[in-house]
Amino acid sequence: MSEWVDACSVDDIETEDVIRFDHGGKTYAIYRSPDDEWFCTDGLCSHEQVHLADGLVMDYVIECPKHNGQFDYRNGEAMRAPVCVNLGTYPAKAEDGRVLVQVA
């Protein structure tokens, strides 16, 4: 199992929002849900490789800024055209005011 990586402070992400996190040559998206839970997915949309962190978080859905494709960021499931391919997801948690993600 890979290490937990310190991604950012919990204050860097508003409730019901997302930020971009680059690590090890890959880009990820880290989410803070409406109930202040933490999630992490691939950072680029599976349709045309756009950064999801520029999109809109609504409940547990991230909407891509380019063509409004939607994913459930808890499990990466593609929910709305034009996205068809699911996102990879990674464990995320908050500890001592920091957000940690377990990315490869």
């Binding site: 349709h47 045309e48 380019k66 063509h67 055209a81 034009p82």
Partner: peptide, 10 residues
């Protein structure tokens, strides 16, 4: 047309 419009935006 859902798809053609996505292409129009790309």
């Amino acid at each position: 047309w859902r798809w053609s419009h996505a292409r129009h935006h790309t």
